[in-house]
Amino acid sequence: MTSPTATVLLVFGCGVVADGHGHRLTAEGEARTRAAVAYVTAHAAEFRRAALPRVVFTGGWPLGIPEAACPPAGCREADLMLARARAAGLDRYADLHAETRSRTTLQNLVHTVEDGLLAGHEFDPARPLGLVSHPWHLPRIRFLAGKALRLSGAALLEVAAADTATGRARRRERVIRAAARLGYLGVHTPAGLLRRERGIARSARLLSGWTRR
Protein backbone atom coordinates (compact mmCIF):
# COMPACT_ATOMS: atom_id res chain seq x y z
CA MET A 1 0.00 0.00 0.00
CA THR A 2 1.34 3.42 -0.97
CA SER A 3 1.84 5.87 1.87
CA PRO A 4 -0.13 9.12 1.56
CA THR A 5 1.72 12.28 0.61
CA ALA A 6 1.58 15.34 2.82
CA THR A 7 0.90 18.32 0.55
CA VAL A 8 0.98 20.73 3.50
CA LEU A 9 4.34 20.92 5.27
CA LEU A 10 5.33 22.68 8.46
CA VAL A 11 9.09 23.35 8.54
CA PHE A 12 10.63 24.15 11.93
CA GLY A 13 13.40 26.71 12.32
CA CYS A 14 16.61 26.06 14.22
CA GLY A 15 18.40 29.32 14.84
CA VAL A 16 20.00 32.23 13.01
CA VAL A 17 23.69 33.14 13.01
CA ALA A 18 24.82 36.77 12.78
CA ASP A 19 28.20 37.48 11.19
CA GLY A 20 29.96 40.23 9.26
CA HIS A 21 27.78 39.55 6.23
CA GLY A 22 24.42 39.79 8.01
CA HIS A 23 22.30 36.85 9.14
CA ARG A 24 22.28 33.26 7.96
CA LEU A 25 20.65 29.98 8.89
CA THR A 26 22.35 27.48 11.13
CA ALA A 27 23.47 24.21 9.53
CA GLU A 28 20.38 22.58 11.06
CA GLY A 29 18.09 25.19 9.52
CA GLU A 30 19.71 24.67 6.14
CA ALA A 31 19.26 20.89 6.47
CA ARG A 32 15.58 21.24 7.29
CA THR A 33 15.04 23.51 4.30
CA ARG A 34 16.80 21.01 2.03
CA ALA A 35 14.62 18.21 3.42
CA ALA A 36 11.47 20.19 2.58
CA VAL A 37 12.71 20.94 -0.93
CA ALA A 38 13.66 17.31 -1.51
CA TYR A 39 10.29 16.04 -0.27
CA VAL A 40 8.26 18.41 -2.43
CA THR A 41 10.27 17.77 -5.59
CA ALA A 42 10.10 14.01 -5.00
CA HIS A 43 6.30 14.31 -4.81
CA ALA A 44 5.87 17.03 -7.41
CA ALA A 45 2.96 15.31 -9.17
CA GLU A 46 0.97 15.05 -5.94
CA PHE A 47 1.65 18.69 -5.09
CA ARG A 48 0.49 19.79 -8.54
CA ARG A 49 -2.76 17.83 -8.13
CA ALA A 50 -3.47 19.11 -4.60
CA ALA A 51 -6.11 21.80 -4.14
CA LEU A 52 -4.09 23.96 -1.72
CA PRO A 53 -0.48 22.76 -1.58
CA ARG A 54 1.40 24.74 1.04
CA VAL A 55 4.74 24.89 2.80
CA VAL A 56 4.88 26.92 6.01
CA PHE A 57 8.28 27.88 7.40
CA THR A 58 8.04 28.73 11.07
CA GLY A 59 10.45 30.39 13.47
CA GLY A 60 11.61 33.81 14.56
CA TRP A 61 14.65 33.45 16.80
CA PRO A 62 15.55 31.05 19.63
CA LEU A 63 14.25 31.67 23.14
CA GLY A 64 17.77 32.01 24.54
CA ILE A 65 18.43 35.18 22.50
CA PRO A 66 17.14 38.41 24.14
CA GLU A 67 14.31 40.13 22.30
CA ALA A 68 16.47 43.22 21.89
CA ALA A 69 18.96 41.15 19.91
CA CYS A 70 16.41 39.48 17.65
CA PRO A 71 17.16 39.38 13.92
CA PRO A 72 15.45 42.17 11.94
CA ALA A 73 12.41 41.51 9.80
CA GLY A 74 13.44 39.55 6.73
CA CYS A 75 16.30 37.83 8.56
CA ARG A 76 14.43 35.57 10.97
CA GLU A 77 14.46 31.78 10.78
CA ALA A 78 11.36 31.41 8.65
CA ASP A 79 12.30 34.32 6.37
CA LEU A 80 15.68 32.79 5.58
CA MET A 81 14.29 29.27 5.06
CA LEU A 82 11.58 30.58 2.75
CA ALA A 83 14.15 32.54 0.72
CA ARG A 84 16.26 29.37 0.32
CA ALA A 85 13.21 27.37 -0.74
CA ARG A 86 12.12 30.01 -3.24
CA ALA A 87 15.63 30.08 -4.72
CA ALA A 88 15.36 26.31 -5.16
CA GLY A 89 12.11 26.76 -7.11
CA LEU A 90 9.75 25.38 -4.46
CA ASP A 91 7.14 28.04 -5.23
CA ARG A 92 6.45 26.26 -8.53
CA TYR A 93 4.78 23.46 -6.56
CA ALA A 94 3.27 25.06 -3.46
CA ASP A 95 2.33 28.32 -1.80
CA LEU A 96 5.14 29.36 0.55
CA HIS A 97 4.48 31.15 3.84
CA ALA A 98 6.56 32.33 6.80
CA GLU A 99 5.56 32.60 10.47
CA THR A 100 8.29 34.69 12.10
CA ARG A 101 7.30 35.48 15.71
CA SER A 102 7.80 32.07 17.32
CA ARG A 103 10.68 31.38 19.70
CA THR A 104 9.89 27.80 20.73
CA THR A 105 8.55 24.61 19.18
CA LEU A 106 5.21 25.06 20.94
CA GLN A 107 4.94 28.60 19.61
CA ASN A 108 5.77 27.33 16.11
CA LEU A 109 2.61 25.24 16.20
CA VAL A 110 0.30 27.67 18.00
CA HIS A 111 1.28 30.79 16.05
CA THR A 112 1.02 28.98 12.72
CA VAL A 113 -2.62 28.24 13.51
CA GLU A 114 -3.26 31.70 14.99
CA ASP A 115 -1.94 33.31 11.81
CA GLY A 116 -4.32 31.24 9.68
CA LEU A 117 -1.54 29.47 7.84
CA LEU A 118 -3.28 26.09 8.03
CA ALA A 119 -6.74 27.51 7.23
CA GLY A 120 -8.74 25.54 4.70
CA HIS A 121 -7.05 22.26 5.55
CA GLU A 122 -8.21 19.26 7.54
CA PHE A 123 -5.70 16.57 8.39
CA ASP A 124 -6.25 12.84 8.76
CA PRO A 125 -4.40 9.64 7.80
CA ALA A 126 -5.34 10.13 4.12
CA ARG A 127 -4.27 13.81 4.18
CA PRO A 128 -1.55 14.15 6.80
CA LEU A 129 0.25 17.26 7.94
CA GLY A 130 3.95 16.98 7.15
CA LEU A 131 6.41 17.87 9.94
CA VAL A 132 9.90 18.76 8.72
CA SER A 133 12.70 18.67 11.26
CA HIS A 134 15.51 16.46 12.57
CA PRO A 135 14.83 12.93 13.85
CA TRP A 136 15.76 13.92 17.42
CA HIS A 137 13.27 16.83 17.34
CA LEU A 138 10.30 15.11 15.70
CA PRO A 139 9.08 13.14 18.77
CA ARG A 140 8.66 16.39 20.75
CA ILE A 141 6.90 18.03 17.79
CA ARG A 142 4.50 15.08 17.62
CA PHE A 143 3.76 15.35 21.33
CA LEU A 144 3.12 19.10 21.15
CA ALA A 145 1.05 18.77 17.95
CA GLY A 146 -1.17 16.34 19.83
CA LYS A 147 -1.67 19.00 22.50
CA ALA A 148 -1.89 22.16 20.37
CA LEU A 149 -3.44 20.84 17.13
CA ARG A 150 -5.23 17.72 18.39
CA LEU A 151 -3.45 15.70 15.71
CA SER A 152 -1.70 12.41 16.29
CA GLY A 153 -0.75 9.10 14.72
CA ALA A 154 -1.02 8.85 10.95
CA ALA A 155 -2.52 12.35 10.69
CA LEU A 156 1.09 13.53 11.11
CA LEU A 157 3.78 12.56 8.63
CA GLU A 158 7.45 13.00 9.54
CA VAL A 159 9.91 14.37 7.00
CA ALA A 160 13.33 13.98 8.56
CA ALA A 161 16.34 16.13 7.77
CA ALA A 162 19.79 14.58 7.58
CA ASP A 163 20.92 14.03 11.17
CA THR A 164 24.36 15.18 12.31
CA ALA A 165 23.51 15.75 15.99
CA THR A 166 26.03 14.83 18.65
CA GLY A 167 25.22 12.48 21.48
CA ARG A 168 25.14 15.47 23.82
CA ALA A 169 22.53 17.21 21.68
CA ARG A 170 20.36 14.09 21.60
CA ARG A 171 20.59 13.71 25.38
CA ARG A 172 19.63 17.37 25.85
CA GLU A 173 16.62 16.90 23.59
CA ARG A 174 15.51 13.83 25.56
CA VAL A 175 15.62 15.91 28.75
CA ILE A 176 13.59 18.71 27.12
CA ARG A 177 11.06 16.19 25.80
CA ALA A 178 10.64 14.60 29.22
CA ALA A 179 10.23 18.04 30.81
CA ALA A 180 7.58 18.94 28.23
CA ARG A 181 5.59 15.78 28.93
CA LEU A 182 5.63 16.55 32.63
CA GLY A 183 5.24 20.32 32.36
CA TYR A 184 2.23 20.26 30.03
CA LEU A 185 0.43 17.48 31.87
CA GLY A 186 -3.30 18.19 32.00
CA VAL A 187 -3.17 21.20 29.64
CA HIS A 188 -5.02 20.87 26.33
CA THR A 189 -5.70 24.35 24.92
CA PRO A 190 -3.26 26.54 22.96
CA ALA A 191 -3.71 29.46 25.35
CA GLY A 192 -3.20 27.22 28.36
CA LEU A 193 -0.11 25.67 26.82
CA LEU A 194 1.44 29.09 26.18
CA ARG A 195 0.68 30.18 29.75
CA ARG A 196 2.26 27.02 31.09
CA GLU A 197 5.30 27.53 28.86
CA ARG A 198 5.78 31.05 30.24
CA GLY A 199 5.58 29.68 33.76
CA ILE A 200 8.13 26.97 33.01
CA ALA A 201 10.48 29.55 31.47
CA ARG A 202 10.19 31.81 34.54
CA SER A 203 10.93 28.90 36.85
CA ALA A 204 13.93 27.88 34.75
CA ARG A 205 15.34 31.42 34.89
CA LEU A 206 14.89 31.58 38.66
CA LEU A 207 16.52 28.19 39.10
CA SER A 208 19.41 29.20 36.86
CA GLY A 209 19.97 32.37 38.86
CA TRP A 210 19.85 30.45 42.14
CA THR A 211 22.38 27.83 41.01
CA ARG A 212 24.86 30.55 39.95
CA ARG A 213 24.94 32.08 43.45
Rank of each mutant, 00 (worst) to 15 (best):
G89A: 09
A69E: 13
A6R: 09
A44V: 06
I65H: 14
E67L: 10
E158P: 01
P72F: 01
Y184A: 09
V175P: 06
N108P: 12
C75G: 02
A36I: 08
Y93Q: 02
L106T: 04
R24Y: 05
R177L: 13
H121S: 02
E99T: 02
R171M: 08
L117P: 11
H97T: 03
R24E: 11
D91R: 01
R127N: 14
R54W: 04
T58I: 00
S133V: 06
R205H: 06
S133G: 12
G15H: 08
R195F: 06
E197S: 07
H23I: 00
P139D: 12
A18D: 08
S203F: 13
H23C: 14
Y184E: 04
F57I: 03
V110H: 08
P139T: 10
L157R: 07
R24L: 05
V56E: 11
R170Y: 03
A204S: 13
R86D: 04
P4S: 04
G183R: 06
P62L: 12
R177K: 00
G209N: 09
R24V: 12
Y93W: 14
L182H: 15
Y184N: 00
L149G: 02
A162H: 15
D115N: 13
H21G: 12
L90P: 10
R171I: 03
A87H: 14
R198N: 07
Y39P: 07
G130D: 03
V110Q: 02
A42W: 13
T189Q: 01
L156M: 10
T104H: 01
R181Q: 14
A78P: 02
E30M: 10
G167I: 08
P4A: 05
L206F: 12
